[in-house]
């Protein structure tokens, strides 16, 4: 087990190096002079040159990358020249909001997606299965920003039950949370159905039924428990989708999370923040994947790497 964990940690190093390289390249080679951008609009030539030296932009590219990587590893992502704050501060604030949103989306996914898949599998090839499958398919097919707008139309504009933008109370989290969770709900429902069907065909399920166990005991105790490993894995991996999906959802609801910070920064050509936001999302995603892999190995003793 320790060997496996060690191996997986080592594999992380080239990935993180590559992520740093891509975020550096993507923002360093954008059109325009970064020193000029950083120095501000009415900077004189001398001020621009001073900024260039201060930021190390006059050094060779490998040295610049080395400095960037070194600072990033120490938790320093630079300063946003547009917003006037440290990038880590901005991202920290935004992540608190996105975290709340992702939590609501995850709850929606578990509460709606898993039962939808179970019902679909247990009532296989009936009308209920058909409807459940269609709902799940719509979940993965509807653009989530469009779904968000439809919900705003219904619940905010027509019915007036929930706010369509802003933050502060739990009511502000409901519509964006559901919107963010739409795709993963459909995904999990589809996955739950297929892994339940696989499990329900196993011999031990037939044995359990033959023993005379009640139908629901077989489904939940023997079926779901064993199908559960795959479901939990995908739920974990899905966190990355939620973080990336927050880009669109947060734009619909003007929600001050990391997705909206990223999009606004792209528009403002605030490259330090763009770089930081992409880097942080990628690192969270990679670390969560690692964690899920490890849990998987702990939970399922059949898995040996």
């Amino acid at each position: 087990m320790l060997v496996f964990i060690g191996k997986r940690m080592l594999q992380l190093i080239p990935v993180l190096f590559g992520v740093l390289l891509i975020t550096f390249a993507v923002t360093r080679f954008t059109p325009g002079d970064p020193a000029e951008l950083a120095a501000g609009e009415d900077a004189t030539q001398a001020m621009i040159e001073a900024t260039r030296t201060r930021l190390g932009l006059d050094r060779s590219l490998p040295v610049q990358f080395g400095l960037y990587a070194l600072r990033a590893v120490q938790g320093d992502l630079g300063t946003s020249y547009i917003l006037g704050y440290k990038v880590t501060t901005l991202i920290g604030q935004a992540l608190v909001y996105t975290g709340q949103l992702a939590l609501v989306a995850m709850i929606v996914t578990i509460v709606l997606g898993v039962p939808l898949g179970i019902v679909s599998a247990v009532r296989r090839d009936t009308a209920i299965d058909g409807i459940a499958r269609l709902v799940a398919l719509i979940g993965v097919s509807i653009p989530n920003f469009f779904f968000g707008l439809l919900m705003i139309l219904l619940f905010s504009l027509y019915l007036g039950w929930l706010p369509s933008f802003g933050t502060g109370t739990w009511r502000h989290l409901i519509l964006p949370g559901i919107t963010l969770g739409t795709f993963s709900t459909g995904l999990i429902a589809r996955l739950t159905r297929s892994s339940m069907l696989d499990t329900l065909e196993q011999d031990y399920i037939r044995t359990a039924r033959a023993k005379g166990l009640a139908g629901w005991v077989v489904v939940y105790k023997h079926g779901l428990r064993n199908a559960g490993i795959a479901i939990v894995t995908v739920l974990g991996l899905n966190l990355g989708n939620l973080l990336a999906g927050s880009v669109l959802t947060e734009s619909v609801f003007s929600f001050p999370g990391i997705g909206r910070l990223l999009v606004n920064s792209i528009f403002n050509r605030d490259y330090a923040t763009v770089q930081g936001a992409i880097l942080v999302i990628a690192i969270i995603y990679v670390l969560v994947n690692l964690l899920v892999d490890m849990l998987y190995a702990v939970v399922d003793p059949r898995i040996r790497y």
């Binding site: 080239p14 990935v15 590559g18 992520v19 390289l21 891509i22 990355g240 989708n241 973080l243 990336a244 999906g245 880009v247 669109l248 992409i278 999302i281 990628a282 995603y285 990679v286």
Partner: peptide, 9 residues
């Protein structure tokens, strides 16, 4: 490395 950037990122 490419897979480290989820979805639309």
């Amino acid at each position: 490395v490419l897979l480290a950037f989820p979805g639309i990122l």
